[in-house]
Nucleic acid binder design. Structure first.
Lengths: 212, 212
DNA sequence: ATTATCTATAGATCTATAGATAATGC
DNA sequence: ATTATCTATAGATCTATAGATAATGC
């Protein structure tokens, strides 16, 4: 039973989940330690197994939630209705970028764990594919209509376009330590770089769909 | 001393390095096991420590080499002289893409290990930055000249352009398991997807530099 | 009576090395 | 005489649980 202890906003169970999230996101499944999670959560180590039985089970809770959030971020970013196509795409890129900026190590975590253990992904597979298909269908319709009207380039595969956007938005965060050193940046430059990057991505994609 | 055993092309030391590469690339430092490496290399486990002393030391050998190769791939891809700018960039994108296709789990490996332990990256930092700067300087000159001639868009930061290219080229490989399931692909579709992807990336970048 | 918490420890791995033995080079 | 190889094991972690004790709800 989850219960909030007097002054504290979180139960021990929630504290473990929070600490586990940090540990797994930064070190991955193999590098994470259940003792470290328990210590960071401020609970006795045995409690971790009391609530979640195994490390694997606790991990799946985290991974599932993160995959769900990540998938939904794409949907909500591009699902804003009532905008003309070009604006809708610009808005989507920026929303998606802001989401990644707020959760910078989510993508690396997910692709890593899915790669190093594809069967973990199995459960989510269907759910992700389903929500993706609806978005793809809607956007493709709108793109085709706009193409007929001469507003955007013809015969654009929206799946490729979305992949362009996600690639451009995610990669700079994944590779930032390397970028920082190659560009000769100090930590102060970080924010300016990402602001610049967001505009670059919008520019690149709008040029991609432009009718020439 | 490295020596080749009669019929065999590799010494035990080389066999360990090869097995270590596979193990580290697929499981990362934390997930890799020295016993597994030794077994895969077909050598007694003690030999691994005889030749490389520690797991950490063996790992650094692999990571250093992979970072070097990865960095050089960008240089050789875009360092081909004698082509007009647009062709040089198209050629660079394709060469870089082909390199990633031949080493699909290199990027994920590198960004992960650098992220989870930035001090490991320290040694390489200067070397990578140096070779990068020369390439950046050369390409920027050429871009500025072309912009004056009206062939490409003005005020393009070549570092942003290179980051666009690397993002577009790398991400689809990093995320392929997820893409495969969302796109409803079977393993047979893989090759076609990546061929299509290469052309998409070229198109996107050429549109990015075009003078409108 | 049930749920939560702690202590103490089993049992499984995993890295690393000591020390003995075999192979090799000079 | 030096280098390579193997056996056997120390010693460090790390996950997981058994079993005792405290807190809570009815």
């Amino acid at each position: 039973m989850i219960k909030s202890k007097d002054g504290l906003p979180y139960s021990k169970e929630a504290a473990i989940l929070e600490a586990a999230e940090r540990e797994f996101l930064s070190k991955g499944f193999a590098g994470a330690r259940t003792v470290s999670i328990a210590k960071a959560a401020g609970v006795n180590h045995a409690m971790l197994h009391y609530y979640f039985r195994t490390k694997e089970h606790l991990f799946e809770r985290i991974l599932d939630e993160k995959m769900r959030i990540m998938g939904e971020s794409v949907l909500t970013a591009f699902g804003q209705p009532g905008l003309p196509l070009t604006e809708r795409i610009r808005d989507g890129i920026e929303r998606h970028f802001d989401f990644i900026a707020a959760n910078p190590d989510l993508p690396r975590f997910i692709v890593n764990e899915v790669f190093s253990c594809p069967e973990r992904y199995g459960a989510m597979q269907r759910r992700v594919a389903l929500i993706a298909h609806r978005l793809i269908y809607d956007l493709q319709q709108e793109l085709d209509t706009a193409a007929k009207g001469g507003d955007v380039v013809e015969a654009l595969d929206v799946r490729m376009l979305i992949l362009d956007i996600i690639s451009l938005n995610i990669f700079p965060f994944v590779a930032y330590p390397i970028i920082e050193s190659v560009f000769g940046y100090s930590p102060d430059d970080r924010e300016r770089f990402f602001m610049q990057r967001k505009q670059e991505n919008v520019e690149t994609i709008l040029r991609r769909i432009k009718k020439l």
